[in-house]
Write a protein that binds this DNA or RNA. Sequence first.
RNA 1: GCCCGGAUGGCGGAAUGGUAGACGCGGGGGCCUCAAAAGCCUCUGCCCUUCGGGGCAUGCGGGUUCGAGUCCCGCUCCGGGCACCA
Length: 827
Amino acid sequence: MARAYDVQAIERKWQERWAQQGTYQLDPDDPRPPWYVLCMYPYPSGPAHQGHVRNYTFGDLLVRYRTMQGYGVLSPFGFDSFGLPAENAAIKTGEHPRSFTDARIAELKASVLALGAVYDWRREIRSHDPRYMRWNQLIFLRFLEHGLAYRASAPVNWCPGCQTVLANEQVLADGTCERSGDLVVQRDLEQWFFRITAYADELLAELDHLEWPERVKTMQRNWIGRSEGAEIDLPVVGAADGAALRVFTTRPDTAFGMTFAVVAPEHPLLDRLTQPAQRAAVEEIRALAQRSSQLERTAAGDPASLEKRGAPTGSSVLNPFTGQPIPVYVADYVLMGYGTGAIMAVPAEDERDWAFAQAHGLPVVRTTKPPEGFEGGAWTGDGPKINSGFLDGLDVAAAKARAIEWLEAEGKGRRVVHYRLRDWLVSRQRYWGCPIPVVHCPTDGIVGVPEDQLPVLAPDDVEFRPTGESPLARHAGFRHTTCPRCGGPAERETDTMDTFVDSSWYFLRFCDPWAEDRPFDPALAARYMPVDNYIGGIEHAILHLLYARFFTKALVDVGLAPGVPREPFARLFTQGMIRMDGTKMSKSKGNLVAPQKYFETVGADALRLFHLFVGPPTDDVDWTEQTDEVIEHGCGGFLERVWRLCVEPEVASWREGDPEEHDRELLRGAHRLVAKVTEDIERWSFNTAVAACMQFSNDCARYLRTAPGGPHRATLDETLDRLLLVLAPMTPHVAAEAWERRHGPGADIHRMPWPSADPELVRQDTVTLVVQVNGKLRDRLAVPADADEDQVVALALGSPKVLAALDGQQPKRIVARPPRLVNLVVG
RNA sequence: GCCCGGAUGGCGGAAUGGUAGACGCGGGGGCCUCAAAAGCCUCUGCCCUUCGGGGCAUGCGGGUUCGAGUCCCGCUCCGGGCACCA
């Protein structure tokens, strides 16, 4: 295609100029009001894909827009450069993860630069950089000192494919690994945890104040899973030591209806409760639970399978409310990891208990009166209490409160809040991650590596083998060390940290990446934080965003971030995915359409414009056969028309002198465009902003062709300048070049202030009056914008079309909304 | 099963309860050209039309309203999240 201008040359020119002039660098002493725009830093997997392009196009638009508005915009970029793919590549090819990763970073960075997105590259962070790792490790030690990091033996999710432990968050609902897809199994191992549960309440409560998509907030609320209820101690019948089974329930009001109790197969009291005659059956359930995957264990159970999955222990406990003994069962529908790992079963008011009771022939006692005509099993709704002694007649809420009061007064239970959220398992048995900076000493136990010895770096001379054992654990030189406290022989921790640790505070380091004596200067972090616009994919709705929120709070609390806001991201924007043939476009699916080919043909501006124009930014994008056409003709063609209009318009003769009415109308259009684009950017409606620009450039082209006596030069100049200014954040290269051609060498559109719209000019003098008869459109009339009710009604009744529609009938009612609408209601 | 979204021309999508389909892609016709590409102009929801216009249209069925794509109730389908969490 013959192009109006040399796309590649001007894109290269301006990219070099932005880099060389440091236009988007922000110094710590910058006097402008700060604004922090951040795209989630990427895992460097090679050249950018369309998802990156979409993300950085939105981010870059905001960076340039806020800059033009006079903000000192903090726009940093970095790489989440630890992670499994590099290590897996090492196992396959022998290439060291560092050189592999650095090569991928170079590729990704090149395509980000080619997109024309601007960053303060002096602030670049790579999480595998020892200068970053050092502070990662220091934070770990501070967490350790403050009891926020701890080591515990726990049944953990072990992925046989990745040969490592996974966090709960990395196990999908069907029990498979989110990365490899293998079935995850349970193993008991010593692991490191972060005590995120200590922040459960705050993490939940502060969601209410964040300008985040409701969807994401709901997902986090569900994930935290707060539930209020009671713990009740059920004394074991015949226990000489007064042992009791502690259960958790959210329905203490139903306690009179408990007809049995159930413990999880892993429950510590199970051995004691199991009578000799039941031993074999209990062991079977226990073995079943152990070898079951999450999938089998949590699959919706029909009564038949529940029968197989539970067995009586032969022991009984006392219901403290009735004083009656009830049998204790073991069943794998009760999970050790939630509540107390034991429940009181009320089949009349709980679906699962109902199913289990049906399968095992256990009695049912209703304690809530179901509505008339209810014929189902468990009734979980509200109703008056029955069969419940002192609770009878109360509704559910009142009975809950009364039951808890009674339990606390009697010393038989207490009000308690439980969370679904678990502590964050951070240790990974892998090489390509940040080493956990502790030493295991036979005499001193766990000892943190002294801060002046950080960072602890993994040795390069390791062997990458697909055995699953960490290369660090096999490396004698790394592993054997001396205890920093007693000087005796000791072993280094060989686990590394979850890469989500790296991404939990990088946005704080961006505020002060030069700090050499601490992770960052709290005063600078307080200046820029919270991030004003955080932009990324919905896939991080739970994991990354929850961890980062936890970290920010914890960093304040351990003294590393005094004065820094406790919530890191004020406004979150989650962009849609790029899909192809109904599935997510991704490297693993092999359906990537690399941005590179567009850079080499239509250019970055056209591709950016496409991503802005294709639809609302939150929506998924379907990449179809039509897409190339839209990018090339729709977007690329538009930019060429803008170029011709602004740089080399074909004008037979210019008209001088005072502007006439049609000239003023063009100028009014330019002011309306500015108002519209400003408003649309503020509400993240980029697609309509682009549409407005297209429409207006069509108006300008028509004016150029049709203005009587030729276009009025001064008017057209002012008009086109405004068009270019609003395009500058969207298509920065062509806007910059066209601007320079119009205003001479050295003129830089990106240093211009964002234009304002004159309200006088935005206002319309004449508007279209719509006349309806019985709600149906019958005529359109041009009326003055300040026409009042009498005027519009008179005009409406004077319209021949309206009179024809009325067909002689008198309007029974006239609804007038001057100046835009009149509705005449007849018969 | 529960909780969120969504459904508008051939396609992507516009539309504070007040002109449905902005803008763009695709398609038709025309200009330019020896011809084509590119570019430019123009038409383009469906049906009827005596070419003036008329009727029908925003997944389906009801309702509120002078007026509903928009609000309410009940469905269908699609997408996403959660799912023995006691």
